[in-house]
Amino acid sequence: MKLVILISGRGSNLQAILDADLPAEVAAVLSNREDAKGLQLARDRGIPAHGLAHTGFANRAEFDQAMMQLIDRHTPDLVVLAGYMRILTDEFVQHYAGRLMNIHPSLLPSYPGLHTHARALADGVKIHGCTVHLVTPTLDHGPVIVQAAVAVRSDDSAETLGARVLVAEHQIYPLAVRWFVERRLVVSNDGKVNLLGDKGSEQSVFYT
């Protein structure tokens, strides 16, 4: 299978996916920021990388159209959002329906949107974490593939909690991509993701 990975920043989840030695080709890494550090990470590994600045477009729809054209040049089987900080248009999401994956720094459906760690701390939750899911038009929604739960410590700040959640992200995102590539993910009629294979050897919730 062929992957196209979208980033907006340093590309730490991109690096985790590349380091996982998945049985797939990363056909391109694209960003909405021309200065995204992750683009150089891709180039250093011989992967085509391109920045398309969203600031050069009149609106979100025009930018998404241009990004879709870039993505489709590489005919991906899966589009991976790895720290891609853009709200997607419905047209974009529907174009890649069933083959668009995202990771979010909370245990969805709790804390969609931004500032998830600070919000979790403000609410006094004891368990936080991250979620890999298939993308639907509703923001930070869609069938959950895998989650990692991270214990909240009494002395945590948003930064320390976020750092531990990021470690968990690097563990579960390559796993979710691998399951997709191995054709082990099936969405049931009730909208839930089922994992095919040996039920005793894999799990979809991790505790760190």
Score class of each variant (00 low, 15 high):
L78D: 05
L121D: 07
S201I: 08
R45H: 11
G46S: 09
T138V: 12
K2L: 09
T208N: 13
V4Y: 03
E159P: 13
R99I: 08
S201K: 14
H141L: 02
Y207E: 10
V26T: 12
R10D: 06
I47K: 04
G11F: 05
E25W: 09
Y173D: 01
A24N: 05
N102G: 10
S204R: 06
F206M: 10
S106T: 06
G38L: 02
G51R: 00
D21H: 14
D140F: 12
G51W: 00
P112E: 09
R10F: 09
R183H: 12
V132D: 01
M67F: 05
R33G: 08
E169N: 10
S204W: 04
R99T: 07
L161Y: 10
T116E: 10
L22D: 03
D35T: 07
D198T: 01
M68Y: 04
V125Q: 12
P48V: 03
D64I: 09
V132T: 08
R33F: 09
R178Y: 01
P48C: 09
N32V: 06
V79D: 06
A27F: 12
D19W: 11
S12H: 05
S106C: 13
F206Q: 02
E34D: 06
W179T: 00
Y207M: 12
D19A: 15
D77Q: 13
A61F: 14
R73S: 13
R43C: 04
G129H: 10
L166H: 13
L14K: 03
Q94K: 14
D44E: 09
A53W: 00
A120D: 06
R184F: 14
M85N: 04
H117E: 13
T89P: 14
K2E: 08
P109G: 05
D21W: 06
V186L: 13
Q203R: 12
V26F: 09
V186I: 11
H74V: 03
I17H: 05
T136N: 06
S8Y: 04
Y111R: 07
N194Q: 04
V205A: 11
C130W: 10
A58T: 07
A149R: 13
H104F: 14
S12M: 10
D90H: 14
R60Q: 14
Q147R: 11
K192E: 00
E169C: 13
T75D: 15
H117M: 15
H133C: 10
W179Q: 00
L41G: 03
D190L: 04
H104V: 05
R43M: 05
N13G: 10
R164Y: 09
R86Y: 05
R73P: 07
P76V: 03
S110M: 14
F63P: 03
I7F: 09
L18T: 08
Q65F: 09
L195C: 04
I103Q: 03
L195W: 05
A36N: 02
V29G: 06
L108T: 02
G51L: 00
G197D: 07
H115Y: 15
W179V: 01
G46T: 00
R119K: 15
I17V: 15
L134S: 03
V4A: 06
Q171L: 15
Y173P: 01
Y173G: 02
R86G: 08
G11H: 01
E91K: 11
H95S: 05
D198S: 13
D64G: 11
C130Q: 08
R99V: 08
